[in-house]
Design a protein around this nucleic acid. Structure first.
Lengths: 227, 227
DNA sequence: ACATGTGAACTGCTTCACAGCG
DNA sequence: CGCTGTGAAGCAGTTCACATGT
């Protein structure tokens, strides 16, 4: 029985392909629900969810309908119920075993990023290539040597790896992570990584975001000059 | 004369609206060009650019054609020339004056992120609300008090602000930054910010990316169970 | 009466395919 | 001949509008 994963979704389980943007929005809805929950709100309409998530009510309903019907007509969505549903859909109902590769500034920031732990992404090991860093203590973990990477990842049954190494080292790390059979990678290095089919790699590219911002600003300047 | 901004683009200057994804790809092409340049490559075809940027040759040509015709038929694109062109389009031909708000772990990581400086985003001031941090030295800067924010931003003629404060404080910071007349914000706090029309806000949401990864992984698990 | 869920219309991005030019 | 630049076709994501259910 595979239905118990989608507990109360009698609808499309074999969903062929959900767009990346839809998944990102689900994540934002979940955040809104968490906030509403903390504020003691019991019910939310698609309209309200849209306002908080920066989208439209039709979009909210479409997104949710991809996975089932969670609302009550004339009423809205139960915060508690939809929250559980989204956590389940996003795979957050049980914790993930995470390893961090790269114990530099970015690694340090991510290591102590509370939001990750709260969402169930538990960092269980830290690796670095710099001998000066190996052996130092991060929380209750000891920074391990780069050389132990493959064995360590396997031994810890690591689900996903956060890559926070310099751009030049990232592809090599990805390949070794792939060797260890880890299926998911969150990459912070500013390079496009080449990975095997069965892996999922997602990159957070801060430079690209900043450049997009730069584009928007200079575009404004140009229009000001023209008009 | 507004044409000197688009030096050698006789084509569409009044470009109504370029998609966000197109701009992100331009940024990736520029990165590939920089790498090619460093490797001594003189010419690149759309096919090659596509391979390096993780897209298709048709997409590359379409993206570039939105701004002009930079290639030579039968040959490809001059690395040097296209690089200059893209830098110009993305607004990277002159440095931006940046302020960093939030001197925590994430702020520290961003402050020493070499990629930013290299692209011409020069951090000229750092602010924090914590009195314990105010006055400490970061590189050749002194961390300034939160209270000086509006005046400081104005005095430094700040172009854009990087927000690296806790989620609960971010909206307030944004409003104060808006008061100081700064037009661009790169936000790292996990909240959706509400900003005035004339501002451009772009968020780097690490939690959302991780959750999208989580979704992809559990989706794989489900399919494995089903198949 | 009110808000969901959803087919249908629409918009806009991506891919195709080929004319045009070095 | 090779590769660009681009209209046209195809496809995907978003919005509309209303039937449906409480």
């Amino acid at each position: 029985m595979f239905v118990n994963v989608f507990t109360s979704s009698p609808a499309p389980c074999h969903v062929s392909r959900i767009s990346e943007s839809a998944v990102r929005r689900l994540s934002l809805y979940l955040r809104s629900l968490q906030e509403a929950h903390d504020a003691g709100v019991v019910t939310l309409s698609s309209d309200e969810l849209a306002r908080r998530g920066g989208t439209t009510s039709a979009q909210v309903r479409k997104d949710l309908s991809l996975f089932g019907s969670f609302g009550k007509r004339g009423l809205g969505y139960s915060v508690e119920e939809l929250r559980a549903e989204l956590r389940d859909i996003l795979g957050l109902s049980q914790p993930w075993r995470v390893a961090l590769v790269g114990a530099g500034k970015i690694g340090a920031a991510l290591f102590s990023y509370e939001d990750f732990r709260r969402k169930g992404f538990i960092i269980r090991s830290v690796y670095d290539a710099d001998p000066a860093k190996v052996g130092s203590c991060w929380g209750d973990l000891t920074v391990r040597s780069d050389g132990e990477l493959e064995d360590g990842l396997r031994a810890d049954r690591t689900d996903l790896v956060i890559v926070a190494v310099p751009a030049a080292a990232a592809q090599r790390v990805l390949e070794r992570v792939a060797c260890a059979g880890v299926r998911g990678v969150l990459n912070f290095a500013p390079v496009r990584l080449r990975a095997p089919e069965w892996m999922t790699v997602r990159s957070v590219d801060m430079s690209v975001e900043l450049e997009a911002l730069s584009y928007a600003l200079s575009q404004q300047d140009r229009q000001r000059m023209a008009g």
